[in-house]
Nucleic acid binder design. Structure first.
Lengths: 345, 345
DNA sequence: ATGAAAGCGCTAACAT
DNA sequence: ATGTTAGCGCTTTCAT
């Protein structure tokens, strides 16, 4: 039951532990014959150097932390996948934590991890933290020598690497796509108006309208609380009944589905006289009827980039330079919008 | 930048490191006054005992591993959430790995983790592993003193704690629900016929028919390869065209959605003359039109149970008894089936 | 080519 | 009440 150690191996061959250590590390100091027999024995007996002893000595754990606001969100799951892939490739383990959008949990997690458990951390800021605008726990972490890479939901004023989406441009493009396919009464439905990324998408929406010379209608900007997602349809129904909306851009999938249902129930045909584009690249988009056109965020690539950048920094101590990487969104055309092709015909 | 250690504190107060250690652990051996000043100093300077030193000494890491076949699967994400919640509550960290359904990856992960990184591991077996029927890596792990808890996809012959769903009964109930609401030509669509849980659901389906005195029709049993999920509709269309199927039970959400679409396209009205029940509790079920009735698996509860059981075992070394916990499924009635109520009226 | 010894940060048995 | 020491498993410098 007790795990094999170099001490055991040393005893077995009547050599010193340092000989064993060197032999296992293939040192030139050790004769080929002893290296061979020791390595073979180690292999046969499934020797594995103790992780904690190694980490204690080297002050490196080869593990990174990741703090995610909500694991049931497909986007975050994708990011996680990207991080895992890169971390695995480069020999790192991942300790993962869910903040549940809570400031306290996020803070406690960071403190728990900054005791030598991890070398660095990847984080997307909890909603509560963003609202409270209190980022000192991140500053402490960085000051303690644990590098941070933030993704998607980042804190402007924290000096660290960041991986973000071009939310603003994504919204501009979405508006222009809709206008080019014949829609002008475009509503903007946001479930994240309290988050920075929500504000950016909102601004992009406004900019898109401006570019297309469409007057802004304040009553076309619809903010919904995120947690009454079961209520989206109920919220939207009266609004759609009263207004001559013929297209929507939403900040998430659920509200896009709700909007589509309500529009269809009202008698619209999607995409012929009602179009919808949703931010996100989740599964819902691929399963709705009709399938949904999205502003896709490339979550996996964001995760991979964050991990690459973090590990680069961990393995290159003199790298003190911080960058912000912008992962471009793409409009993935499905069936909830008309395509340019059709229009050009 | 360098982290504060008890040695530093000892130097600062001109006492020995053991005094500091005892003071920080509130030992009765140390005078109240020195305890106070040392504890205050530690707190003010944000002292944190080094994780690796602690683990090396105690041979406990207070971290558990979790190996999941696919993080983009909502069910597994739910399980993860349950594990995280319990682990966090009981002071454990989680190292999470994705096997991507690969035997090699699963095996390597297990080996990587069994070097003292973790105290125990929670795992749902990769598809490839189940097909190869090769579980020696789990046996090695257990033999090395690292307890395993398996969930959902478990290996019968491995002697460890298990947390499973009553797949068989779930399918029986689904059949009976359909029959009671007036459907007799019930097809069974499986995307996981190669997995044990798939076989159990299949058998439950057969048993349900038997109980209801409905003849089995082999051509109503439809097995689809999981990875051509984009093709589900294409696969199903000709089948539905030829046969007088009026209800389906599916092993997953995606194929249920496809079945519903194909049925509707064929002219059926769901649920009036065509019903569907899907295994799973994902987001798709809540967003489809009509919303889908499911055999819900309670992923979060499964994760929580697995974590509780594993940690119980870790903290109670003489607990050598292994159990299998069955988490019951529930039929969650939504709009793709008629309800008993309607029938009884 | 091999070994002795120190040290990573901590705990705990054993002095004093 | 405080200190000394050994040891957790390993690497590495410095003998030999």
């Amino acid at each position: 039951m007790k795990r094999l150690t170099i001490k055991d191996i040393a005893n077995h061959f009547n050599v010193s532990i340092s000989t064993v250590s060197k032999a296992l590390n293939d040192s030139y100091e050790i004769s080929v014959s002893t290296k061979e027999k020791i390595q073979r024995f180690a292999k046969e007996n499934n020797y594995k150097p103790n992780f904690n002893a190694l980490s204690l000595k080297s002050r490196k754990t080869k593990t990174i932390g990741i703090i995610i606001p909500n694991m049931l969100n497909y986007f975050f799951a994708q990011v996680f996948k990207g991080v895992e892939k890169v971390a695995n490739k480069r020999g790192y383990k991942i300790i993962s934590c869910i903040s549940n959008e809570s400031y306290e949990k996020e803070k406690e997690t960071l403190e728990m991890l900054s005791n030598g458990s991890i070398d660095g951390v990847i984080v997307s800021i909890a909603e509560e933290t963003e609202l409270q605008n209190n980022f000192s726990h991140f500053e402490n972490c960085i000051a303690a020598g644990i590098p941070i890479v933030m993704f998607d939901r980042v804190a402007e004023r924290i000096n660290c690497d960041k991986v973000i989406t071009n939310d603003f441009d994504g919204a501009v493009n979405a508006v222009q796509h809709l206008v080019k396919t014949g829609f002008k009464n475009i509503a903007f439905i946001s479930t994240i108006s309290n988050l920075q990324i929500g504000r950016l998408r909102h601004q992009g929406y406004l900019k898109g309208l401006e570019k297309e010379n469409i007057a802004i209608r304040e009553d076309f900007i619809i903010n919904i609380k995120e947690d009454d997602y079961k209520e989206y349809e109920n919220v939207l129904t009266p609004i759609f009944a009263q207004k001559d909306i013929d297209a929507v851009i939403t900040t998430d999938e659920s509200s896009a589905i709700a909007a589509m249902k309500v529009a269809i129930r009202k008698g619209h045909t999607v995409p012929d006289n009602f179009s919808v584009i949703a931010f996100s690249n989740g599964i819902l988009a691929r399963h709705s009827s009709p399938k949904m056109t999205t502003v896709s965020q490339h979550g996996e690539q964001m995760g991979a980039t964050a991990a690459e950048k973090l590990i680069d920094k961990l393995e290159n101590n003199n790298d003190t330079h911080n960058e912000t990487f912008i992962i471009k969104t793409d409009i993935v055309e499905r069936k909830s919008t008309k395509s340019y092709m059709v229009v050009h015909n």
